[in-house]
Amino acid sequence: MTTSSRSGVVARLVRWRGWIQAAFLLVWLDPLLLRLHTVCSPVFHCYSCPLATFACPIGVLANFSAIHVFPFLAVGLLVVIGALVGSLLCGYACPFGFLQDLVGKIPTPKVHLPGWLGYTRYAVLGGLVLAVPFFWGEGHPLFFCRVCPAGALEGWLPNATKAAIDSGVFVWANPLKLGVLVFVVVAMFVKWRPWCTLLCPLGGIFGLFNRGSLLVLRYDGHACSGCGQCSRLCKYDVLPGGNVNNTQCIRCLECTKCEAIRVGCALGRGSNGEQCGPAGAIRQRRERKGSRLYP
């Protein structure tokens, strides 16, 4: 194990991550009742939520695909954010990621799944967000918003509850949407961030930028003793020692507690962490194989 000597800023960011997520929550929950729905946010928060400051970028991509219009604004915003920090907003700003982190703190046994399952996010993005709306329109039962768990939790649940209080009639969401919501909520208890690591199309988009963003993680194979600490620090099934700028990484920066992994700038010197010291990834994988369950 290597001792930590991280820069003070990163160490403080990691220590205060929960509070930073909570502060961002205030931004997305429209405390000033501005309802700026002409602008996309860079996080996964449903615009049907009675408290949503901005429009959801995934809802916008899906709906624009359905009307065959290229969403220059939404794409531009995601590219700019991705080019600057990769998936850092997943780790520090997204309310749906924060919710999963909070539920994950409930001490139930957590399973680890192979990282390659994260590629299903691209199937969701290509299929339900882009192709289904493009070819079959917004009325199709697999149109992404019709199955989205954030839409169910943040849009349907509060609005149906309010309608039930006003009119006495509770309107249920469609069974598929309810099923996905129940699945994701149950999964939050047994896996860290199941939605983010397996299914979220927005996390998939940001993950694509991890290798090409200004903010990068650097892995120093020479400082790595192969102790596997970084893999244990990563709750989200990324193997930081193998490829620290992985598309699966949500940039929580927890693994930077090991001094072999540092936050850097793509314009500066040093590797982007694609390579791994001989003691690194191979030994970590071997170790991970033997422990599928985390306490």
């Binding site: 220059f72 604004l73 794409v75 531009g76 590219v79 700019v80 991705g82 080019a83 200004l214």
Partner: peptide
């Protein structure tokens, strides 16, 4: 990427 993203926003 930053330039392309900014250009896309401006176009939008």
């Amino acid at each position: 990427l930053l330039v392309a993203g900014a250009a896309s926003i401006a176009a939008g």
